[in-house]
Design a protein around this nucleic acid. Structure first.
Lengths: 149, 149
DNA sequence: GGCGATGATGAGAATCGTTCTCACCTTTGT
DNA sequence: ACAAAGGTGAGAACGATTCTCATCATCGCC
């Protein structure tokens, strides 16, 4: 786990505490697991990892924690359209990325694109809503599937 | 229903037939209902409309039809992250739009932005996948919720 | 250090969208 | 009209997420 993620975990605990949340075993475990995974994890997957790591955390606690972290903007839930929400850390650097999903095999890759970000910001300003976040999903064929097609 | 949508329905029947699909009551009903709704409908909602309209169509048929139409690129499934897939007609004009979702009340609005499309195309070309489709979701507060905040 | 109020937790039930199964009905080519 | 191949619907199965509720741990206070 990079120090950036370790820092994120600390920050998470800090913010949780100052928002009036009590500390608890389950929540800590979820935060640690998230930091270790580094993002792009589904809730079930997180629950599995915790169970495999020997930490008995109820499903409800995993979802609860993800919900709270989401409200505090410490994680962001993404839905790439496979019926599972995946969660990403919101790092202090503010950097974020988007995803390309293979229509055939479901493989996903991440990408960043400054020009795209800029265009989105401009579009967001033109929108009737007070936009605070955005999400882009590209769909196509991954190199492996494309060569098989 | 605009003539554009009526044309879409016709085109759908035509493409289905030439792709070797037989015609059937349920499929027709779903296509009509879709054309009438004009897009942005969930599968359940579609099933409800059909039931209310007195056409007894099984849930399975609705999903099946949506699946087939999707494969033929006659509709596109979108997932704005509320755990429901919503379907949009793919009109011959090729125009498409994206969505802004209110984080508070869930209201959605559509928007088009040529500059954004262009930026996405360029980004897609830089991506490692053979991108064929994309989706953008902006999140923020709708005017109503923003004024209440 | 102990107490009590209140938040946190986990097991399992409940929801809900979607997919699957399968017996039965329709369409289509002949 | 016939039979083969599809299409269809009811309901079961599924899987992710949410809810319920009895129990447990934490924190402020003494």
């Amino acid at each position: 786990m990079t120090s950036e993620r370790a820092a994120w975990a600390q920050e998470a605990h800090r913010r949780l505490a100052s928002a009036g949340y009590r500390s608890g075993e389950a929540r800590s475990a979820v935060i640690d697991a998230l930091a270790q995974a580094g993002g792009c994890v589904g809730a079930q997957e997180l629950a599995d990892r915790l169970r495999d790591a020997g930490r008995r955390v109820g499903t409800a606690s995993v979802y609860r924690t993800l919900g709270v972290l989401g409200e505090l903007e410490l994680v962001r839930g993404r839905d790439v359209g496979e019926g599972v929400a995946r969660y990403e850390l919101v790092l202090p650097s503010g950097h974020h990325h988007h995803h390309v999903v293979c229509e055939r095999c479901g493989a996903t890759a991440a990408f960043e694109d400054d020009e795209l970000e800029a265009a989105i910001d401009r579009a967001a300003r033109r929108a009737p809503y007070a936009v605070r976040d955005h999400e882009v999903v590209l769909r196509g064929l991954c190199p492996a599937c494309a060569s098989k097609a």
